[in-house]
């Protein structure tokens, strides 16, 4: 009975947890939060899946190979976004001169490349936390 309640609640909650994590990541420039907190919330969604449904089901959704790939993809994504500035003839990681749309202040598309960069860090943090959890759980 307890198992049924846990599984039902987590099944309903996980999409909202993931959505809130992505919201915190993308609004990092506008509101409290940012890439670290958002990525942690995103990773905790996967950890909840691993805890309640078992490691096999969790591996189906977010495998170790996928986590290792994403751990490397985050910094590569960060550096590639930074190189856009050099390709446009300005400095590394420059924001306004790289040609990304600056948008209106106060709306979601307002920071230039900041939302894209925080997406990279969020992916890195989320996959690192899931990798840590899997490494600790498989110890036994």
């Amino acid at each position: 009975m307890l198992d049924f309640v846990l599984k039902s609640v987590v099944t309903v909650l996980i999409p909202f947890i993931q959505m809130f994590g992505l919201y915190v990541i993308f609004h990092g420039a506008l509101s409290p939060g940012g890439s670290f907190a958002g990525g942690m919330i995103l990773g905790l969604g996967f950890i909840a899946l691993n805890v309640v449904f078992g490691l096999e089901k969790g591996q189906e959704k977010f495998s170790d190979e996928m986590a290792g790939f994403l751990v490397s993809l985050g910094p590569i994504w960060y550096g590639s976004i930074g190189l856009v500035g050099i390709l446009r003839g300005a400095n590394f990681l420059v924001n306004k001169d790289s040609g990304l749309p600056m948008g209106e202040p106060g709306t979601l598309i307002s920071g230039g490349m900041i939302s894209l960069i925080t997406l990279g860090i969020g992916i890195k943090v989320a996959s690192t936390i899931v990798t840590l959890f899997n490494a600790l759980t498989e110890e036994e």
Binding site: P32, F36, A37, M40, L44, I129, L132, L136
Partner: peptide
């Protein structure tokens, strides 16, 4: 400092509790 509050809630309640329970 709501920024630190969100990080503390996520890291403290979620990750620390999970990791210490696993250890």
């Amino acid at each position: 400092s709501p920024d630190l509050a969100i990080t503390e809630a996520a890291a403290g309640i979620g990750v620390t509790t999970l990791m210490i329970t696993l250890i």
